[in-house]
C-alpha cells in the first residue's frame, strides 16, 4: 500500500525506506530520519532530523487532524487508487455551497427558469442567501423543501438545460 495524503487539494506521498530504532521516510521527495513517541493517546513528539516537535493527532475514518506549532492541518488519506473527485455542476444541478436550511422554494417542478433566476432562499447560520439557476431550462426536481436541512454539496434543484435551436 502506498498512502497518499491530501492537504488543501495538493497530494503528497510518504514512503517508508527502512526502519531501525528510527524510521527513514521519503517525505514528498525528502529523505528524513524520523522518530515518533506517544505521550498519550492523542499527544506525542515527532523528531525529524534531530529536531523535536510536539503534536496532537486524531483520526476520523480517512481524515487526520494534526496540530503542530499552534496550527491544525486537515489531512485526507487517499489510497493508491486515489479518491474519485466529483466535479459536479456540469449539468444544471444547483448544489448547496454550505450546509443549511431551506427557507423558501421559489419554483415548482416543471417550471421554466432563466439563468440567474432565484430558485430558492436558503439560510446557513445567520445568513440568508438566494440560490440562482445556473442554466436556462426546466426544473426537473427539487431536492429539499422549505424547512428541510441539507449538507454542503447536496443537490438543491435540478434543471434540464434548454435545447439551443
Amino acid at each position: 500500500m502506498q498512502p497518499k495524503y491530501i492537504i488543501d487539494d495538493t497530494e503528497y506521498l510518504v514512503t517508508p525506506i527502512r526502519r531501525t530504532d528510527s524510521i527513514v521516510l521519503d517525505i514528498n521527495g525528502h529523505t528524513q530520519d524520523v522518530r515518533l513517541k506517544w505521550h498519550d493517546e492523542h499527544y506525542g513528539e515527532i523528531t525529524i532530523a534531530g529536531k523535536p516537535s510536539q503534536f496532537y493527532a486524531a483520526q476520523d475514518e480517512d481524515r487526520l487532524y494534526i496540530h503542530i506549532d499552534g496550527k491544525v492541518w486537515e489531512v485526507n488519506i487517499a489510497d493508491e487508487f486515489g479518491a474519485t473527485q466529483d466535479d459536479g455542476n456540469s449539468s444544471g444541478n444547483v448544489t448547496a455551497p454550505m450546509p443549511g436550511v431551506v427557507i423558501e422554494v421559489a419554483v415548482n417542478q416543471g417550471d421554466s427558469v432563466n439563468q440567474g433566476d432565484t430558485v430558492m432562499l436558503i439560510e446557513s447560520m445567520k445568513l440568508q442567501t438566494e440560490i440562482k439557476a445556473s442554466v436556462t431550462g426546466t426544473v426537473t426536481s427539487i431536492g429539499s423543501e422549505a424547512g428541510a436541512s441539507f449538507n454542503k454539496g447536496a443537490v438543491l434543484v435540478s434543471i434540464t438545460a434548454e435545447e439551443q435551436s
Binding site: 503528497y12 525529524i48 494534526i66
Partner: peptide, 30 residues
C-alpha cells in the same frame, strides 16, 4: 516546508493503516 514535513511524517506514522502495517511487519534490522 519544515512544517509540511512534520505534518506528513506525523500523518503517516499516526495513520491507523500505517500502524497496522508497522505492527505486522517484522523489523529486519533488529
Amino acid at each position: 516546508q519544515e512544517q509540511l514535513q512534520s505534518v506528513l511524517a506525523t500523518a503517516y506514522l499516526t495513520d491507523r493503516n500505517t500502524k497496522l502495517l508497522l505492527d505486522a511487519t517484522p523489523e529486519p534490522y533488529a
